[in-house]
Each structure stands twice: as structure tokens, then as C-alpha cells.
């Protein structure tokens, strides 16, 4: 169990490193804070985030 947690954290870190936010955290947040309201599916979530990050007014910015 412990190893699984470590792996999950590592995967989360890796995903954040390439700029892909965490779907589990989002889904958990929506279920906990907004019960009954729609939750985006994983594919929808990724599309939304991609559009958000690279679309107009883009989110990516790197120093140097």
C-alpha cells in the first residue's frame, strides 16, 4: 500500500513536471465541495487544461 502511494506521488510529480494537472485532485475537490454538480471526465479535463495552458493568453511562460 505504501509503495502504491509513493508511486502515485511520483506519477503526480512527473505529470506536474510536464504541466499536466492532477485529475484525481480535481475530481475529489468537485465531489467534496460541489456535490451534485457535474464533474468533467478525464478526457474533458485534459482538453480543458490543455486549452487553458496553451490557448489564448497562454499559461506557459518560462524564465530564461
Amino acid at each position: 500500500m505504501r509503495w502504491r502511494d509513493v508511486l502515485a506521488q511520483a506519477a503526480r510529480t512527473a505529470r506536474l513536471m510536464v504541466g499536466v494537472p492532477d485529475y484525481e485532485a480535481y475530481a475529489a475537490h468537485r465531489r467534496a465541495e460541489h456535490p451534485g454538480e457535474p464533474v468533467m471526465s478525464r478526457a474533458e479535463f485534459l482538453r480543458d487544461r490543455t486549452e487553458r495552458r496553451f490557448g489564448a493568453g497562454g499559461g506557459i511562460s518560462r524564465c530564461c
Binding site: Q9, R12, T13, A14, L16, M17, P21, D22, A25, Y26, A27, A28, H29, R30, E33, D48, R49, R52
Partner: peptide, 17 residues
């Protein structure tokens, strides 16, 4: 916290980011 842009994240995970 909105699960999208504002997500409380473990500090080690954040470090990678």
C-alpha cells in the same frame, strides 16, 4: 481551491513542478 488552477499540493510534488 477549485481543483483546477488552485490546488493544494504536497510540497515535494510542487517542487517538481
Amino acid at each position: 481551491n477549485d481543483g483546477l488552477d488552485y490546488v493544494p499540493t504536497h510540497r515535494n510534488v510542487l517542487f517538481g513542478h
